[in-house]
Simulated scan of single mutants.
Amino acid sequence: MNNAVVRLQNLTRSFEQGGVRIDVLRGANLAIQPGEIVALLGPSGSGKSTMLQAIGLLEGGFGGLIEIAGINASQLGKDQRAAVRRDHIGFVYQFHHLLPDFSAMENVVLPQLVAHRSQDEAQVRARELLDALGLGARLDHRPSQLSGGEQQRVAVARALANKPQMVLADEPTGNLDEATADRVLGQFLELVRGEGSSALVATHNERLARAMDRVVRLHDGLLEETGLR
């Protein structure tokens, strides 16, 4: 467990709503090893997105240990958390969140420039990823000129642009029809494995979860291993 890319220990998160305390996470534990792709199963509202926000260091208010690439991120300041996200984590969301005024290539180049990679290096990396995802002929197209599946593949390339150790995907194919979802997920898994990254993929789709290395289920604020394959 010591070389885990992500380690959660006794993770808790509560909210106040209408004067009532809601315990979304009640002591969840998880370790994800290098190169491991894990499906996070659970119905809408079960806390999957909250858990991804914890691992992605996107907000505070969590109790317990959050360790990313050996770094105890639980008590880091805002700037330190941003540095860990930049250097170690990639994100794919249900909606692509691409910058509408930028081309596919530019959307994948930009996060690399933020990470201080040179323009030439960033373009080579972007082209490599987009080619691998079958988008070599669409490099100069803006998001509005791309299909839903193409947009999401650009989002996958963007998430992997800085070679993150950990990729967090929140219902990454939830906005696509079944055939397109299968194709995008297959390309996503192939690329993540080829890059040697780990991934945690939140989904409510048990059929898609079977394509991953391991499946955990979020139930009543706790994580349970499942034999689903």
Results as ranks from 00 to 15, higher is better:
N2P: 04
A4D: 07
Q9M: 08
N10I: 00
R13E: 03
F15C: 00
F15S: 15
Q17H: 11
Q17M: 14
Q17K: 13
Q17E: 15
G19R: 06
R21N: 06
D23R: 13
D23A: 14
L25W: 09
L25P: 01
L25M: 05
Q33S: 10
G35H: 05
G35E: 00
E36K: 08
A39W: 00
G42S: 08
S44F: 08
G45I: 12
G47V: 03
S49A: 12
T50L: 01
M51L: 14
L52R: 12
A54E: 05
I55V: 15
I55P: 05
G56Y: 15
E59F: 08
G60F: 04
F62K: 00
G63T: 07
G63Y: 02
G64F: 00
L65V: 09
I66A: 02
S74R: 01
Q75C: 07
L76T: 03
Q80A: 08
Q80N: 09
R81S: 09
A82D: 14
R85Q: 04
D87L: 10
H88K: 12
H88Y: 09
V92S: 04
V92M: 08
F95Y: 15
F95Q: 09
H96P: 00
H96K: 11
L99E: 03
D101H: 11
F102I: 02
S103A: 09
M105G: 03
V108R: 10
L113I: 13
L113S: 14
V114T: 11
H116Q: 11
A122R: 03
V124E: 13
V124G: 05
R125D: 09
D131P: 03
D131F: 06
A132S: 02
A132L: 02
L135P: 02
G136S: 09
G136L: 05
A137C: 04
A137L: 05
D140N: 14
S144Y: 10
Q145R: 14
S147C: 11
E150G: 11
Q151L: 06
Q151C: 12
R153E: 15
A159P: 04
N162I: 04
K163W: 04
Q165A: 13
Q165L: 01
L168Y: 02
A169C: 08
D170W: 12
E171S: 11
E171L: 07
E171K: 12
G174Q: 09
L176D: 11
L176K: 10
D177N: 13
D177P: 11
E178K: 07
A179T: 07
T180K: 13
A181Y: 06
R183H: 14
Q187R: 10
E190V: 02
E190I: 02
E190A: 14
E190N: 09
G196V: 03
G196W: 00
L200G: 04
V201T: 02
V201C: 01
A202H: 12
A202W: 11
T203P: 01
T203H: 12
T203N: 07
T203R: 05
H204D: 07
L208N: 14
L208W: 14
A209Y: 02
A209H: 08
M212C: 12
V216A: 00
L218E: 13
H219P: 05
G221Y: 00
E224R: 07
E225M: 07
E225P: 12
G227Y: 00
G227M: 13
L228Y: 07
L228T: 01
L228V: 13
